[in-house]
Design a binder for these strands. Structure first.
Lengths: 127, 127
DNA sequence: GTTTTAAAACGAAAACTTTAGTTTATATTT
DNA sequence: AAATATAAACTAAAGTTTTCGTTTTAAAAC
């Protein structure tokens, strides 16, 4: 398994859009970007970089390319979150949950959802 | 409240060490760094950059400086995780927990810890 | 009090990221 | 088929981050 190269901020922003949309032409990507929209060529360059990195592919439609992710968001998220967990939460999910319980204002329904989820998981685990 | 500037990767690596150790001379930081250790000056430059950004301070000992974080890890983590949550988990903690349940192998004791924690939180919430 | 030495400060080169203008190729229109 | 238009590819400049060699400094050793 090849080690996934870390994405830069701009690259990641474009990947987020591709992950969300599944497939997109350069213009579609630009449409999804906020306020100070970059030039067409800027985005075009980035998809090409991402393609070179092996995380994006394309299919030709006439002389246009429609781009799509080659790496699943889940997969990338996994590697990425591994770092975050290690650096910020001592590799402990309870520590992370506790952090959010302390700092963010969790709703009752969110908490109940987590509880249910964890119980489910426990059921599967214990015997 | 001033908006905390995002840290670069190298800066963040040094902050992690300062957060862990509390106080450290440049050499102490280098000692904590992995394999291809950077030159003394490299690290020295970074602590100075961090100082300029207002996230690190120092006290003088003779002609040495002992550096320490001015921004709590918790505080920085908060802003940082807000992004992560938004980009990767649609701002939903249950989604994040679910992600880990699916991908990482959580131990029974971790799950129980989370369950307890969530129940505690619920108790506090529901009237 | 002069020399040595070790750390901080400075400065600038190297590497990487971001941004877009220019060029090229090829469909589409005339 | 020539002109036009459009999208990708190329190129390069601007900006940022990372890396250290060099210089300055001030304390310590002589």
């Amino acid at each position: 398994m090849k080690k996934m190269k870390e994405l830069t901020r701009a690259e990641s922003e474009i990947m987020q859009i591709l992950w969300r949309k599944g497939k997109a032409f350069v213009q579609d990507i630009i449409d999804e970007m906020p306020k100070p929209k970059p030039a067409y060529n800027t985005v075009s360059t980035f998809v090409r970089i991402l393609e070179q990195k092996g995380v994006v592919g394309h299919e030709a439609f006439g002389r246009s390319h429609r781009y799509f992710p080659l790496v699943e968001k889940e997969k990338y998220t996994r590697g990425f979150m591994q770092n975050v967990m290690g650096s910020y939460f001592e590799n402990s999910l309870p520590k992370m949950v506790s952090f959010f319980a302390k700092h963010e204002d969790l709703s009752v329904s969110e908490l109940e959802e987590i509880k249910k989820l964890v119980e489910m998981e426990l059921k599967g685990k214990k015997k």
